[in-house]
Nucleic acid binder design. Structure first.
Lengths: 208, 208
DNA sequence: CCCGGTATCAGCCAAAAGGCGGAGAGACCG
DNA sequence: CGGTCTCTCCGCCTTTTGGCTGATACCGGG
């Protein structure tokens, strides 16, 4: 069988060369190309179609990882996209998965786990680091804690530091409605105050 | 002259091997040891004293980078500590510098910049990535916007989502005093509400 | 066709937060 | 020594937030 070809996408040169060195130790895996940004990834993917694209979600500037995944999937060379990132934020996981990612591996994973993920992705299997899987699982098990679209929208403004009045104006709803949504959000996040909600949201959703 | 010996401290294996590969291209630089945590770094530094310690600030669990720097400096084998991290958060820079770091380099820096930083640190020179230096510079220019130690302490609890009452209990001060500190913090951060303060603080200070 | 989920709004009341002005004690510095 | 900074605390008043209860309307599935 031909070795699995991999395209690395990460804005840090150190991470790319580290990953290349690591994957290089496996005879059945070959890094065929690299890209430092979402835009570059799309271009490079044209020239060097790979079996697996390993992508960091947090790219310094320009297109973010999620957007890049969507575009890659649209261009659909049926290559599998494997998210390789530092954080296991709830929101990122969900967004990545529904952007079409085949797997989600954290940067602090053991080498064997990384290899397994690449091989799995190449075979069309879905692979997740344990902490990632458990987060996803928890969301499925506990739909009561999943925000509705409207609530999520409000939350994303809330964590900018807006007041109830400002939130109302932005969303074209009354302050009363804002309060209702907030009460629901607090309940779902397990907090009592907006301050705590912001703290939790930013940390847990990676909303920055 | 003997090559410069380097000790790498980072909880991500990928980053360590990438950095090792990168530094390996320079004849005058040799990586002599690695560590995956602050605790390990201290132990390893005993066995393999290096000229320069390259340290990530954000270590998964256990001792954080700042703490590790302090301890290393106390043990003082006069080795230079170079911070090598992803974020250029205001607070981290200040804390690292006064914990005794010789330099501060961002992970997305160009290879030449990284090499220069290592060489500079080995010679006892202070080295900073441009964005880092400019942040520090701005703080010196604008002392009105720098939080006092007490304010910073309060802020670090604030962004956990605590109420004024809770803040008071934690810091053994009255609620009145808490409000006074908060008012000063708001002024310095340029916000009017605690929600906005939390939002700004978490984003700008990287306080997570 | 009724029910559950979502989104919208209201009013009332208590608690929390914020603005304002003032003030004393200790530390540090020129 | 005098000025500045920092940390501490008070009271008073206004605004904001949060808790509670209840209500209307739309939509989609069983």
């Amino acid at each position: 069988m031909n070795p699995i070809s991999v395209l690395l996408v990460d804005d840090h040169l150190v991470v790319r060369s580290g990953l290349k060195a690591l994957l290089g130790t496996q005879p059945d895996i070959t890094v065929v190309a690299e890209a430092a940004s979402g835009e570059e990834a799309l271009a490079v993917a044209q020239q060097h179609p790979a079996d697996v694209v390993m992508m960091d979600l947090a790219m310094g500037q320009g297109m973010d990882g999620i957007e890049a995944i969507k575009r890659l999937r649209q261009a659909s060379k049926q290559q599998a996209v494997l998210v390789f990132t530092t954080y296991d934020s709830d929101a990122d996981i969900v967004r990545a998965v529904d952007a079409g990612a085949m797997g989600y591996v954290l940067k602090d994973a053991a080498p064997e786990e990384i290899f397994a993920a690449v091989r799995g992705a190449a075979q069309g299997k879905s692979v997740m680091s344990a902490p990632v899987a458990s987060k996803l699982f928890q969301q499925l098990r506990n739909p009561d804690e999943v925000l509705t679209p409207r609530e999520a929208e409000l939350l994303s403004l809330l964590i900018q530091g807006l007041s109830n009045r400002e939130l109302g104006k932005r969303l074209f709803i009354s302050e009363a409605t804002v309060k209702t949504h907030l009460a629901h959000i607090y309940a779902k996040l397990g907090v009592e105050t907006r301050a705590a909600a912001i703290a939790v949201a930013i940390r847990r959703e990676g909303m920055r």
